[in-house]
Each structure stands twice: as structure tokens, then as C-alpha cells.
Computed example of a mutant assay.
Amino acid sequence: MYPKDLLQQIAFIKEIDKIKYIERRTKLFNSDRRENDAEHSWHLALMALVLAQHANEPIDILKVIKMLLIHDLVEIDAGDTFLFDTTKNHDNTEEERTAAARIFGLLPEKQAEEFKAIWEEFEARQTAEAKFARSMDRLEPLLQNVSNKGGTWQEFNVGYSQVLQKQNVHEAISTTIDHYAKELIQQSVEAGILRKD
């Protein structure tokens, strides 16, 4: 007989495999293939590890990595919301809260509480770790769209002000990344791959 917590953890591990099937709108670097949520989360976690030195203040990088690895698990139930969706708010929804309760609820109680608290901290965007994680979550699609010569910006007629608004998360946590992102946006307008408003 196996311990109950192990069986709960295995059930969670099996359930989260479904994240590999959640397709995002953004495409892989220099590619026509859309990224899935698992690839996105893995990439963000590595980005955070590599770019942590650019945070304006000390951050707990392990907590940031945890946030990035679990932040989109709710999309197993709620689905992915496109960053530039004009009909559905990209912020936390009741549907995502219900998904968090179900998915994290598969884990043993203490672990479920920890994961849900980390997810809620990410969504609240108040701590340095949550701000840095959010910065990574917004930087990746910027880099992808630049690499794809406009990518989803052109596909969905996204303009300069929309991109700038979504990228305004960097300033609060990393002056360096903020300057880099804003320069990339400006260069994208000048190159004609991002529509000027």
C-alpha cells in the first residue's frame, strides 16, 4: 500500500500533463508553430533564472521559478486567453479560480495550499517575485513576435499602443529589461513589423 500523499501527487502529475495540449497564439522563435503552455512555462522559468541579475531589488528566484511553472496550470480548465484579446480580460477570472481550486486540490492539503498561494501571489502582482515573473511572462511574447517579423501582432492587427501597454510591467521590477523592451518595440515600429497607431 502506497502513502495517500504519493497517490495524490501522482494524480496531480498525470493531470498537469494536459498543459502540453493547451495551444497559445504566440509562435515559437522563427517558426510557424504555435507554442503550448508547457513550452511557455519552461521557457519563462529559464528566462527568469538567466535574467534574475537584472531585477532592481533582490528576489527569491526559486519562488519566481515556482510561479512560472504553475502560473498557467489553470488553463487546463479555463483555456488560454490571448494577451491582446479584446473580448475577455486577461486578468484573473472566476473561471481560473475554480480551475486553481480543482487542479491544486488534487495535491495533499499542505502542498495544495502552497501552490494555490504561489499562484495567487503571481496573480496579485504585489511582491517583487510576482512582478519579476510577470515581466518574464510579457517579455517572452515580445521576443517571439520580433523574431517572427510581427507574428501575432500582424495576424491580429495589434498596434504599438497595445503592445506598449502590455509591456509596461517591466519598469516596476527591472529598469534594464524595461529599456530593452521599449527599444525593441520602437525598433519594431521602425522596421514596419508593428503597426504605428
Score class of each variant (00 low, 15 high):
residue 5 D to Y: 11
residue 5 D to L: 09
residue 8 Q to R: 13
residue 9 Q to Y: 11
residue 9 Q to F: 13
residue 10 I to Q: 15
residue 11 A to Q: 15
residue 12 F to P: 04
residue 13 I to C: 12
residue 13 I to S: 14
residue 15 E to P: 02
residue 17 D to P: 04
residue 20 K to Q: 12
residue 21 Y to S: 15
residue 23 E to R: 11
residue 31 S to P: 08
residue 31 S to R: 09
residue 31 S to M: 12
residue 33 R to M: 15
residue 33 R to T: 12
residue 35 E to C: 12
residue 36 N to A: 09
residue 38 A to C: 13
residue 39 E to T: 11
residue 40 H to Q: 07
residue 41 S to E: 10
residue 43 H to Q: 14
residue 47 M to V: 10
residue 47 M to R: 08
residue 51 L to G: 08
residue 52 A to Y: 06
residue 54 H to D: 12
residue 58 P to Q: 07
residue 59 I to S: 00
residue 60 D to S: 10
residue 62 L to C: 09
residue 64 V to W: 07
residue 65 I to G: 03
residue 65 I to M: 13
residue 66 K to S: 12
residue 67 M to W: 05
residue 71 H to P: 07
residue 72 D to Y: 07
residue 73 L to H: 05
residue 74 V to K: 06
residue 86 T to D: 15
residue 87 T to P: 00
residue 87 T to Y: 10
residue 89 N to K: 13
residue 92 N to P: 00
residue 94 E to A: 15
residue 95 E to F: 00
residue 96 E to F: 07
residue 101 A to L: 13
residue 102 R to Q: 10
residue 103 I to A: 07
residue 104 F to P: 01
residue 105 G to F: 01
residue 106 L to P: 00
residue 106 L to C: 09
residue 108 P to V: 11
residue 109 E to F: 04
residue 114 E to Y: 09
residue 116 K to P: 01
residue 118 I to T: 14
residue 119 W to T: 04
residue 120 E to L: 13
residue 120 E to R: 09
residue 121 E to P: 02
residue 122 F to R: 07
residue 123 E to I: 04
residue 123 E to S: 11
residue 125 R to I: 00
residue 127 T to Q: 01
residue 127 T to F: 08
residue 128 A to I: 08
residue 131 K to V: 07
residue 133 A to R: 07
residue 135 S to Y: 04
residue 137 D to C: 04
residue 137 D to V: 00
residue 139 L to R: 02
residue 142 L to C: 05
residue 143 L to T: 03
residue 144 Q to L: 15
residue 149 K to E: 12
residue 149 K to H: 10
residue 149 K to A: 06
residue 151 G to Q: 06
residue 153 W to N: 06
residue 154 Q to S: 05
residue 154 Q to K: 13
residue 157 N to Q: 14
residue 159 G to D: 15
residue 160 Y to L: 09
residue 162 Q to N: 12
residue 169 V to N: 00
residue 171 E to K: 13
residue 171 E to A: 15
residue 172 A to G: 01
residue 179 H to Y: 05
residue 179 H to V: 01
residue 181 A to L: 06
residue 181 A to W: 05
residue 183 E to C: 10
residue 183 E to W: 01
residue 189 V to P: 03
residue 197 D to K: 06
